[in-house]
Design a protein around this nucleic acid. Structure first.
Lengths: 197, 197
DNA sequence: ATCTATTTTTCTTTACAAGAAAATACCTTC
DNA sequence: GAAGGTATTTTCTTGTAAAGAAAAATAGAT
């Protein structure tokens, strides 16, 4: 049922395990954590084993003992070292449609075969018409490097022209759109930070 | 008293405001959010105004409607919109020394005049000798895109050859070093995540 | 074995989130 | 200015599950 589904989702955060990890890390006993936090040992035991879901005020008490923010319990665990390569020849390129007007540019996702990555890369090739792409916005920040040609980028209304070799950095939450500025083809590398803030 | 202090601490997270921001961002009414989340409008109103502290299952329901993780409500506010451009002609390029052997490559920092940025960009130009750079490691992750030529990159001992247009993604904590692989000059864009974990 | 120390369980209480419905505020439109 | 419709806030009640107290169990050492 519904509540089941939800609590399952919550369990994936492993709040209890994280509390226990913090505590054992400092070599503390439940009783000591209880003293410092003003919470009963029994409840702490239940929390650590996921038997109950602490309320936010309770969780905050625990967090304060260890000097961490609440985000500690909800951010993804730091990913293990990993290397992922995408070779040009192996990559798929797919056209990005622009309404009914036809393709505006090709889009090439630097698809790294990794689940928990913090950066996403795209190679955009503005080889066709020079109509602006649909303005869009999303979480994170964006860094764009113009590999070839001239790129016009509109961020929150303001349009700027970037020459080959130029780079721009901005908050992805501001609506932005691209279009080819020059007469010849233009390509740019787009790096965006992935969701996890 | 204690509970007062604690709830004050919670308020600083501004959970309610964040919920409201999410909702208004999508132009939703309380009723619509209520439908999608299965929560009553009255309660949602109270949550948004900080009148009650939602339980984690409840907060998760809201989070799921907007496709965000719980961390969204507990991580520091995303920095305000900012745009920073670096034009090629204005940039400084400085040679990176390689021991006493002379310059290995030129280094061009895409220095965005911003303090709180999450990404750093560098344009490395391996125009001289092809000796490997000093292995180094740091926090964060790294994305490298080969703009021109061939780049050999060694990560944790393993060396790989990247062709023009290839890209690689890896954890910066693993010691890594670069060197030019081909006979002709090579340049690559290096994007690294900045400190903030 | 026995005696600590720590964790887990059981049982009870109670706080407070959650819901329903009425009331208020907020716009339009006539 | 009144009427009507939507969105939000308030009030009141209820039910659930967190939180505490104390006993049981587990483990660890002497």
């Amino acid at each position: 049922m519904l509540s089941d589904t939800l609590s399952k989702g919550l369990e994936e955060y492993e709040i209890g395990s994280k509390v226990r990890a913090l505590r054992l890390d400092k070599g503390m006993a439940l009783a000591q954590l209880g003293e410092h936090s003003g919470l009963s040992v029994g409840m702490l035991s239940k929390i650590e084993r996921g038997q109950i879901i602490p309320t936010l005020p309770t969780l905050l008490r625990i967090a304060m003992v260890y000097g961490v923010g609440l985000d500690h319990f909800f951010t993804e665990d730091n990913d293990r070292p990993l290397i992922a390569v995408t070779h040009k020849k192996e990559r798929m390129r797919f056209p990005e449609r622009q309404g009914a007007k036809g393709e505006t540019y090709f889009f090439e996702s630097l698809n790294f075969p990794a689940t928990d990555r913090k950066l996403n890369g795209f190679l955009a090739e503005f080889s066709m018409k020079s109509e602006p792409s649909e303005p869009h916005s999303h979480d994170g920040v964006e860094l764009i490097y113009v590999v070839k040609g001239q790129l016009a980028i509109a961020i929150g209304g303001e349009e700027q022209i970037l020459d080959e070799g130029d780079a721009i950095y901005f908050d992805s939450q501001t609506p932005h759109s691209y279009r080819r500025a020059g007469k010849s083809a233009c390509s740019a590398l787009i790096v965006v930070t992935a969701d996890g803030e």
